[in-house]
């Protein structure tokens, strides 16, 4: 059962990372790139709880650092995404079934993750952050997170119900 959960999470993350770096980054959308990985973490946390949500966050962050072109500090994305998975899993009411509220949570998680990553990078000494672009990036990432959440959360919920029903929380 744990292995099956792990396989489902790993496949979701792999698809999210590949799609985010090949399709979504090249679309040339204004502001931030739609953050499919954060939305996947939120969707898994909503469907399977805070434990699997945090694990998804850790693995997603590790995959982003290792396998995509980025010069960020390795491990930073993992910390932020573990926190996102945990927070969403713990604070979201399991009976909440309104898809728009859940999409809003996904959007807020994207914005929070982007801000937290920028702040932590600055604290750890990275000099790349262009602070006057940060508000625009945060706003656009919340918007894209909302749209992606509307699509991904029901999808992941459906997959969890079918593939790992014993872990699915409802």
């Amino acid at each position: 059962m744990v292995v099956r959960q792990l396989v489902v999470i790993a496949s979701l993350l792999l698809a999210a990372v590949v799609l985010q770096t090949t399709v979504l980054s090249r679309l040339g959308l204004p502001g931030a790139t739609p953050d499919l990985v954060v939305v996947t973490v939120v969707a898994v946390a909503l469907a399977l709880g805070p434990g699997p949500g945090a694990l998804t966050g850790f693995l997603g962050g590790a995959l982003l650092d290792i396998a995509t072109p980025s010069d960020a500090i390795v491990g930073l994305a993992s910390i932020v995404l573990v926190a996102v998975g945990l927070a969403v899993g713990v604070f979201m009411d399991r009976e909440e079934s309104n898809i728009w509220v859940m999409s809003l949570v996904a959007g807020a998680a994207c914005g929070g993750a982007a801000l937290a990553t920028a702040l932590l990078s600055a604290v750890l000494g990275s000099e790349r952050i262009v602070w006057d672009v940060v508000p625009g990036v945060t706003l656009t990432t919340v918007l894209y997170g909302l749209i992606l959440g509307r699509v991904m959360i029901p999808l992941v919920g459906l997959l969890s119900r079918r593939l790992v029903p014993e872990a699915y929380l409802d």
Binding site: S25, S70, R128
Partner: peptide, 9 residues
């Protein structure tokens, strides 16, 4: 692949 814009890199 293109790195995400949130990285600022």
């Amino acid at each position: 692949s293109v790195g995400p814009a949130q990285d600022f890199a």
